[in-house]
């Protein structure tokens, strides 16, 4: 199916779908409609339970799967080889990914193989004939840059899924999966995992309520108040980057552009200024409640609720009120 708009995903996260799948399909679907191309969804490795049904809802024309024992855990060398062969066979018009940690390796390496354009942090894609105008976030979100991609070849784009609202269409029949054959016999992974990461407990990315602390907490011992409030609200504790850099908390607490990209129902930001790079990881929250002693702090521009005050005076009271 040449000239298609291809969405490539792998893995399974909450809701039985790969992370960001609905957001990327929403962007890709409207792009496909605007240029009259087919929307194709390609999954790598074992297919998540909800894919076939979701493909139907989003008007996917074909559901492709590349599965191979070597693709378990999506090692980059194997994934890039599989995708390069796929693109050679299928000649897509563009390949779109959800931007996650692994995509940062796979998308640009694929572009190098295809000798084609690559854009990360994408928030919008428009097309006109052979030309794509791809909008991406820059300076952590302080600006957006529109890049023009012209000419032949298959551009590769990694979509910043939390910047997009999924369409969530209702009707649609499940799609049958078509297996696409590629030859992975000669590729072997060069990066050897000697100690895998131990996923411990729930992830910030999945949390419904997050309470995060920033430099305004003043001292490492005050972070306990953040943990206590998070617990009282039945949520999880996060942090801005300076707390990670200072070694106050482990790096898996870092919310932001280069940390966790979260989408909770409620995000409570305490002593956090609201720098764009932090907001990149929490701006998609349904609602933000901010506590900051500076009434001019940027965080209040994003917040639905705000208290101008001292975090150390307010936190114990919030913990008490939350427990009552």
């Amino acid at each position: 199916m040449s000239n298609a708009i291809v969405v490539c995903t792998w893995g399974e996260e909450r809701g039985g779908l790969p992370g960001g799948a609905e957001e990327v399909l929403s962007l890709a679907g409207s792009l496909a409609r605007s240029v009259g191309s087919d929307l194709v969804w390609l999954t790598l490795g074992a297919q998540a339970a909800g894919v076939a049904e979701t493909a139907g809802r989003y008007g996917v024309a074909a559901l492709h799967q590349i599965d191979d024992a070597k693709l378990a855990d999506i090692p980059a060398d194997v994934a890039v080889e599989a995708l390069a062969q796929y693109c050679e066979q299928q000649s897509p018009r563009i390949v779109l990914f959800n931007q996650m940690a692994a995509t940062r390796t796979i998308a640009p390496r694929l572009a190098a193989r295809l000798d084609s354009a690559v854009v990360m942090g994408v928030t919008e894609v428009a097309a006109d004939g052979d030309t794509f105008d791809i909008t991406a976030s820059a300076y952590g979100g302080d600006t957006r840059v529109v890049y023009r991609v012209a000419g032949a070849g298959t551009p590769v784009a990694a979509v910043w899924a939390t910047a997009i609202t999924a369409e969530c269409p209702e009707a649609g029949a499940s799609l049958a999966v078509e297996s696409v054959a590629v030859d992975l016999s000669s590729v072997s992974e060069r990066v050897d995992i000697v100690e895998p990461a131990k996923a411990e407990g729930p992830k910030l990315e999945d949390a419904e309520i997050i309470v995060s602390g920033g430099r305004g907490l003043g001292a490492v011992e005050n972070y306990k108040l953040i943990r206590d409030l998070a617990e009282a609200l039945d949520g999880m504790a996060g942090a801005s980057r300076p707390l990670v850099d200072e070694g106050w908390v482990d790096s898996n607490h870092q919310v932001g552009l280069t940390g966790k990209i979260t989408k909770p129902n409620l995000y409570v930001a305490v002593g956090i200024s609201g720098a764009s790079q932090h907001m990149a990881g929490c701006g998609a929250a349904n609602a933000i409640a901010a506590i900051n002693k500076d009434s001019e702090a940027a965080i209040f521009q994003y917040a639905r609720f705000g208290i101008v005050g001292d975090a150390l005076e307010l936190l114990p009271e919030l913990i008490r009120a939350a427990r009552s």
Binding site: I134, A138, V146, Y147, R148, G151, Q301, F305, I307, V308
Partner: peptide, 21 residues
């Protein structure tokens, strides 16, 4: 270049905070 910047803009943030004072 395979990609060329044609425009840069500053996205607007809609401030709409209810202050508890």
């Amino acid at each position: 270049p395979r990609i060329q910047m044609i425009r840069q803009f500053v996205p607007t943030v809609q401030g709409n905070c209810e202050f508890i004072d």
